[in-house]
């Protein structure tokens, strides 16, 4: 049992850097498309790890089911909204950043 708990803890600790890198990407990247890229990818993976870690440590099954439902929901929502934002940005003719 402790092994699962330890593994869960490791997963959570793995997830946090992804979030931090997502935020750094958001601040450092030059244009909207790269920032979208950073935000959607990194944060979702981070959340995936956190959810996995918490699921491993969860006692009863309905918590695990609930966690997975939340994770799936966030995945769907953020990918769809990333697409919508990118399409909207393209319509507004925002040129992607090209290396000078």
């Amino acid at each position: 049992m402790a092994f699962l708990h330890g593994l869960g803890m490791v997963c959570i600790l793995l997830g946090i850097p992804f979030f931090v890198s997502g935020t750094i990407g958001l601040l450092r990247f030059p244009d909207i498309y790269t920032r979208l890229h950073a935000l959607t990818k990194a944060d979702n993976v981070g959340l995936g790890f956190v959810v996995l870690g918490l699921a491993l440590q969860a006692e009863e099954w309905n918590t695990v089911a609930r966690l997975l439902l939340i994770w799936l929901l966030v995945l769907i929502a953020s990918s769809a909204s990333c697409h919508l934002v990118a399409r909207a940005a393209l319509r507004r003719k925002i040129q992607p950043w090209t290396r000078p």
């Binding site: 929901l73 769907i76 929502a77 769809a80 919508l84 399409r87």
Partner: peptide, 15 residues
């Protein structure tokens, strides 16, 4: 609505 939005709505609204 675009295809992505339509599927998103079809998934999210019942939930």
């Amino acid at each position: 609505p675009g295809p992505v939005l339509a599927t998103l709505v079809r998934l999210l609204v019942p939930l």
